[in-house]
């Protein structure tokens, strides 16, 4: 599987995603430029974290109309894998590839902390190496991260199994204290109905080596690469779902 990481003006996690794939997972990965419409025949497009176009107007609102996004939208609609992380999640929401919107954190503070994510759906290519209920530790770093959708949309997301991750406490229960930004129903990540498009606020690419504090992000990359499910051809240590204190 070949990956492409999009760089927008103001992206700042593009190199993190690139390094996670190239150096840690030894997977083929290329940068894609926001001003090009060429996706270089990759199998999975990553829209990285950062502050594309300075977060002007709304996070993701300007990036969503970049030339590259025309191709990304077409790619997603034909079943291509598109993974939006943090600012990339906001871009996906603005592009209406997944439903809802992101609001300023309820606390009005920039949330830079470790969170626990509970996997609520393993019916996506990103989570098929997990079991529902697994808890993954990853960092979040955002000022605008409160997921919002109206009641009807939320109900629809829940019933169709599109809620992929929720912020939870050590017991795996979503509560107010574990929710870093005021997201409705503690939602941290959702997919489209088909599961090929995933958007999430936390940063799996920043949790891929012990020195970073967690390797749980690898679970998602390895699910995509098909190594977790089969346990073959992985140069890496076996995944351990850690649950050290946050």
């Amino acid at each position: 599987m070949r990956f492409g990481v999009v760089t927008f003006p103001g992206s700042n996690c593009d190199y993190d995603a690139y390094a996670a794939l190239k150096r840690v997972l030894c997977a083929p990965v290329e940068f894609l430029w926001h001003g090009d419409s060429d996706l270089k025949d990759v199998d999975c497009v990553i829209l990285p974290g950062g502050f594309s176009f300075g977060d002007y107007l709304r996070p993701g609102a300007i990036a969503r109309f970049s030339p590259v996004m025309k191709s990304v939208i077409r790619f997603a609609e034909t079943g291509g894998l598109v993974w939006g992380i943090c600012n990339g999640f906001q871009v996906l929401l603005e592009a209406e590839l997944i439903p809802g919107a992101i609001l300023r954190n309820e606390s009005l503070r920039f949330a830079c902390q470790w969170v626990r994510l509970r996997v609520d759906s393993n019916r996506t290519p990103y989570t098929r190496g997990t079991r529902p209920g697994d808890i993954l530790r990853m960092p979040v770093a955002h000022a605008d991260g409160a997921y919002y959708a109206d009641d009807e949309t939320l109900m629809d997301l829940e019933t169709s199994g599109q809620v992929v991750f929720r912020y939870v406490n050590a017991e795996g229960i979503p509560d107010e204290k574990s929710n870093p930004n005021g997201s409705r129903r503690s939602i941290a990540g959702i997919s489209n109905r088909e599961g090929n498009v995933l958007g999430m606020m936390p940063h799996p690419e920043r949790a891929v080596e012990p020195i970073l504090g967690s390797e749980d992000g690898l679970t998602l990359f390895k699910s995509l690469l098909g190594t977790t499910a089969t346990g073959v051809d992985s140069p890496l240590r076996k995944r351990v779902v850690s649950d050290r204190g946050v």
């Binding site: 609001l103 300023r104 954190n105 309820e106 409160a146 919002y148 005021g182």
Partner: peptide, 10 residues
């Protein structure tokens, strides 16, 4: 209406 506006609240 109904969308939280934490800046307005502050």
């Amino acid at each position: 209406d109904g969308v939280l506006d934490p800046q307005g609240k502050t």
